[in-house]
Design a binder for these strands. Structure first.
Length: 281
DNA sequence: CTCCTGTCCTGCCGGC
DNA sequence: TGCCGGCAGGACAGGA
């Protein structure tokens, strides 16, 4: 699923492909995704040059030359296809938005489950956009420290697993990387967030950064219905320590070669949590 | 305010 | 072989 690392990979792919290019036409194949596509979406975008692309949490922000812009959230199954000029675009089912550029290339938003969405923003006003207003710090920035994390966790009685999924605590984490970070930090997912000690928050903050950085380095990760913007299969190579590995010996137990714990699956807040009870306390 | 549950959507997979 | 139920999950609405 697209979490912060996958979204960042898509952002980088898009940046290389469309920055500085002029949007010729925006074709909408349906009026809505997760939410309605704004009525003036095409009108705002067409004729504009793409000035820059950034990311906040799991959102890609695209800014245009005139100060307008839009956000793109990939939801569960959102994929951005980049078709260079001259390659010829072959439409597929679930291609919802097609953006044609003056140079002949195009970018296609493809999303079978339609949990993704787009909305209009502006360069000066994006921070006040509802999704960003209360959003927590970017985990890979200096704004995210052990102290900041500890303070946020102190205010939550919910399980640490649930707390880390809350985008107000820290931005960009989803089910996969929360499971992986908690495993790496040795913290049991059921533990109430406010019972995580200061020194554990220190370790956890470092593990969150590490798990995200490694995933970005390896080109992002994914389940079967997700692929790289350039169509390469790089995302299939990444493997996880605990996520979706029920019954396997966890990597730490494997290395220790002692009393080995197997990866277990529980449900928290309706979501699967994968962990090793032997390594996470 | 926080917490919890249900909802959206389609594809896939296991069971019968 | 085909059908059906369950599951996957990010964000949000609404109720407790």
């Amino acid at each position: 699923m697209p979490e912060l690392p996958e979204v960042e990979i898509v952002r980088r792919g898009l940046e290389g492909a469309v920055r500085g290019k002029k949007i010729k036409r925006v074709q909408l194949n349906r009026p809505n995704l997760r939410f309605a596509i704004p009525d003036n979406f095409q009108q705002i975008l067409e004729g504009q040059v793409i000035d820059s692309l950034s990311r906040r949490g799991k959102y890609i922000l695209v800014f245009l030359d005139d100060g307008n812009g839009f956000v793109l959230h990939l939801g569960m199954s959102g994929v951005v296809k980049i078709i260079p000029a001259g390659d010829g675009y072959q439409p597929e089912k679930h291609d919802h938005i097609v953006m044609d550029f003056e140079d002949g290339g195009c970018v296609v938003y493809h999303d079978p489950r339609r949990f993704g969405f787009v909305d209009l923003i502006t360069r000066d006003g994006w921070a006040a956009y509802s999704s960003f207003a209360g959003m927590g710090p970017e985990p890979l920035s200096n704004a995210f420290s052990a102290e900041v994390l500890f303070e946020a966790l102190q205010r939550k009685a919910a399980p640490i697993k649930t707390a880390l999924l809350d985008q107000k605590v820290v931005a960009g984490l989803g089910n996969i990387y929360v499971c992986e970070a908690l495993f790496m930090a040795g913290i049991h997912p059921i533990r109430p967030a406010n019972k995580v000690l200061r020194e554990e928050a220190e370790v956890l903050s470092r593990c969150i950064k590490e798990v995200l950085m490694k995933a970005i380095e390896s080109g992002g990760s994914s389940l079967k219905d997700y692929y790289h913007t350039d169509g390469s299969l790089g995302y299939f190579q990444h493997s996880f320590a605990v996520y979706d590995r029920v019954g396997r010996v966890c990597p730490k137990c494997e290395v220790a070669r002692r009393e080995a714990g197997c990866v277990e699956r529980i449900v928290q807040g309706g979501r699967s949590t994968f962990f090793c009870a032997f390594q996470q306390k």
